[in-house]
Nucleic acid binder design. Structure first.
Lengths: 349, 349
DNA sequence: GCTCGCCTCTGAAAGGTTTCAAGGTTGTGG
DNA sequence: CCACAACCTTGAAACCTTTCAGAGGCGAGC
């Protein structure tokens, strides 16, 4: 076979070829790979030499087929472009590496169809387990996976259906903190910017805000809802456009955004249309991503323990797939308000 | 077998079980899956019913073992936390989906060991191909992969070793644009912030800057190098600390950063230490990520066609793995300077 | 009534690895 | 010189899917 054939045909040398080249049996080659201590040093050296000279690469499919499951764990992210989720992913990877597993990241990009496709794919791949920040947690696919043997841990959403572990941050409390802060500053007309409402976080954070209004003796309906099509900077700019277009007398004096991307877009658009932040419009974001602090006007935001979220989720998953007495858990962390310039101007009259 | 057994043992029903349940042969089940038009409607219905009731899930490992290669393509990113790379990833995914493939993302996080681990893993998985923004393009692993049958396309780096395709943006030109812009504004003491020097982009952008100096009749050594340990916001802040600590007479009046994360960190730290941007320090970033425009002082930056980069890379990879007459190509795009407030203050004397 | 062709279905083989019971070798103690 | 243990190595079986040559059934045409 020529070098050209190799290139075209792809991987070629298997255990069998190595065994033949080294003059030993298949089993011995396998032992060199998996339990080298059982093999005499001489034989091992011969086999290793043969592997090197043939360019042997283990075929993970075959290995997995035999073993029944893989050494890979997947994190299906809601939006890979949002630094919040990449920070969560870092935590996941840290925990996985500590346990000797690798992580594949998948991006559903807030698209239910892609989410479904990836879930199917991962199940077919027989990954060790799936971490997911779901678009729609009612999805039937989400339920069927654990029932068929692929553990699933829900990240950044609380869920209590007895099928999954979940790791979340109390989004209702987070929303409450944000709106309470704005009320304390004297704001009366407050907007909530977020969407779509199929995303649980969007709803919870809004409901938390409503709670704060109620506790302050105001009507829930006081919260002016501006619904966006996604949680992105671009949608934030669109919301800014809408807000800035209102006559000053009716325009909200403060906006609470469902995440920092929206807040940054909103901030940018409003500033460029001549509104002053926080004097004309105070803004609160959510997630406290690294860029929130570096924004045009440093952003007040609700901070979540991002890496811890990921690490904890991965640890629960590992427990689920290795501990026969595993019990599903629902872990909830507590968010924290970080106040910066975007709300810290002069109090309103 | 009880439901509990299923949960513990994992996926269980295979083609064989489905065949038995439907009263047909293995081959027929396979035909239902792969060439349904060959199967009579009646039989097909029976088989589909059996699959549904047994919760059959295709075993991708076995499938792949038989087929020899998978329907998956991987993008090994330099830093998943950098929005530049997630935008590239979006382009990759777009092209892959159009061709019916899925994408797994891996994050080397600027760590050579992790990069190597992932490359091994992906080769063992027999992925269709690997897209990579490498830390060290001399790495032997990078060379051995294509030789053994896994196509590799290098993204955001030009490379010309006859082993890979590559898709890049002209970083030398980008550096030149940035420094030329600063020179035009009258800056004399200009810093270059970037590192480590093992990363090709860091070196090219610096060298481009030196070119600009030379063309302006100045010495290359005029470029004050501030070397960082990574291309992150945190390192940018550190560089800001160092810069701001210099006596004003020796402090550079402008800084060109190897990417926007550094620039944003630098900007933030300098502002918080009381320097005015651009009056005391003009800043140019690189990549023009979405957050550059929304920064405390909107950032002048060198823009690259991010999604296009990813899409093109994926297309080259697909061609390489499907077209027997494939020729390796080196595609280079041209960057573009986007001027914003961070350099647009009053000209210096 | 026979042949031919078409349509549908069958079942064995292959693909690369791991496991494991069993076989072989070497060396020690009696 | 034998028995037995300790240590290595062997090779068949199993994992699950896909493929493909061919078997079987049926209707049409002669």
């Amino acid at each position: 076979m020529t070098a050209d054939d190799t290139r075209r045909r792809g991987h070629t040398a298997g255990v069998k070829a190595v065994a033949a080249a080294a003059g030993v049996s298949l089993g011995t080659v396998s032992n060199v790979l998996n339990r080298p201590e059982l093999v005499s040093p001489l034989t091992r050296a011969k086999v290793e030499a043969a592997m090197a000279s043939l360019g042997f690469v283990r075929n993970e499919s075959a290995r997995q087929l035999r073993a029944g499951s893989s050494r890979i764990l997947a994190y299906l992210m809601l939006d890979a472009g949002n630094p919040f989720f990449t920070d969560v992913a870092k935590g996941v990877e840290e925990a996985a590496r500590a346990a000797g597993l690798s992580v594949f990241l998948c991006n559903s990009n807030e698209d239910a169809e892609r989410e479904a496709d990836y879930l199917d794919l991962l199940e077919q791949q027989r990954v060790q387990g799936v971490l997911i920040t779901p678009i729609d947690q009612q999805s039937s696919r989400l339920r069927s996976l654990p029932a068929r043997g692929t553990p699933v841990v829900v990240v950044d959403r609380a869920i209590d259906d007895g099928e999954h572990c979940s790791v979340a941050v109390n989004d209702i409390l987070g929303g409450e903190l944000a709106i309470a802060h704005l009320l304390e500053l004297g704001h009366e007309r407050i907007a909530y910017v977020g969407g779509p409402l199929t995303i649980g976080q969007v709803v919870d954070r809004r409901d938390g805000g409503r709670n704060a209004l109620r506790k302050a003796g105001r009507s829930e309906d006081a919260l002016i809802e501006i619904t966006t099509g996604a949680l992105t900077v671009a949608e934030g700019r669109g919301a800014g456009q809408r807000l800035a277009g209102l006559p000053a007398a009716r325009r909200p004096t403060a906006a609470f955004c469902a995440n920092d991307l929206l807040a940054l877009g909103l901030l940018q658009q409003c500033v460029s249309l001549g509104l002053r932040v926080p004097e004309d419009l105070a803004i609160v974001g959510y997630d406290d991503i690294e860029f929130a602090e570096a924004a045009a006007v440093p952003l007040t935001s609700v901070r979540q323990p991002r890496q811890l979220l990921g690490r904890t989720a991965a640890e629960l998953l590992l427990d689920e797939s290795s501990n026969p007495d595993h019990e599903h858990q629902r872990v909830t962390f507590t968010p924290e308000l970080v106040v910066r310039t975007s709300t810290r101007g002069a109090l309103l009259p």
